[in-house]
Amino acid sequence: MSKALEIRGLRKVYDNGFEALKGIDLCVEEGDFFALLGPNGAGKSTTIGIICSLVKKTAGSVSVFGHSIDSELALAKKEIGIVPQEFNFSNFESVWDIVVNQAGYYGLTRELAEQRAETYLRQLDLWEKRNTASRMLSGGMKRRLMIARALVHEPRLLILDEPTAGVDIELRRSMWAFLKEINQRGTTIILTTHYLEEAESLCRNIAIIDSGEIAENTAMKTLLKQLHRETFVLDTKEPLPDTISIAGFETHKTDEQMLEVALEKGGSLNAVFAALSEQGVEVTSMRNKANRLEELFVSLLAKS
């Protein structure tokens, strides 16, 4: 399979002298659903900015479906659809004009542009709003408008920079379903997000970037296997005795009727329950303290 994106030794020093990227390598295969994660200021948007030529790189190389952004920029740009982190459309134009004009910038005939605009505005549930000035849309609608705009020239690589920031749960789930569907139809997707649950449920491969360096780059499954500690939160029927402890497990009483138990890799939950029964504690419910990827993320960043 060919590479949708290939980044080698990418460095970025901003005009003020700040080094936002310290020579990163990144590879995304065609057809992949790829998560680019990292804390605030890690360099995710900088990387994306360089890929779509809004930010000038200091060193290194980037190619999109084999087209180098140095020698074949126009060809590379045609393959990319970009949904930026910040809203960047005209406040005074209508939803329809924004999407149709964008198609025009890519050289699509008016007829095709209007046809595509209708398709994507309907799919993203914006058809009713097509004649509305963009400033009058809600935050979630604005995000979807940027997705429709990014798709109108049918790029092979779709890059979304925090597409679900400020989007309610229901809408987020429908956006996930939509993205999964277009990925299944063949579009390679790269996504950044701070909702790790989102990355876990959507993405097959993942890179974690921290302070301008790649801290981890692997398959989601491999990464989750590395998880050697999981914390569970147990709610109990009666107030817990002060002396509560479970041999071989780290516990933490967070509330009268709430106990946190850390389970090391290979540990048995049965042992936990056996110990609790012995002490007369009845558990009414149990949940993960954090999303699994989240725990991993925190421990990875703590290491680096």
């Binding site: 740009k77 045609k78 910040e86 960047n88 964008q102 910038y105 050289g107």
Partner: peptide
């Protein structure tokens, strides 16, 4: 100012 110049800057037009 409103940043929609980016629509043009990311497009492949000359």
């Amino acid at each position: 100012f409103q940043r929609f110049v980016e629509e043009i800057l990311v497009s492949p037009m000359s």
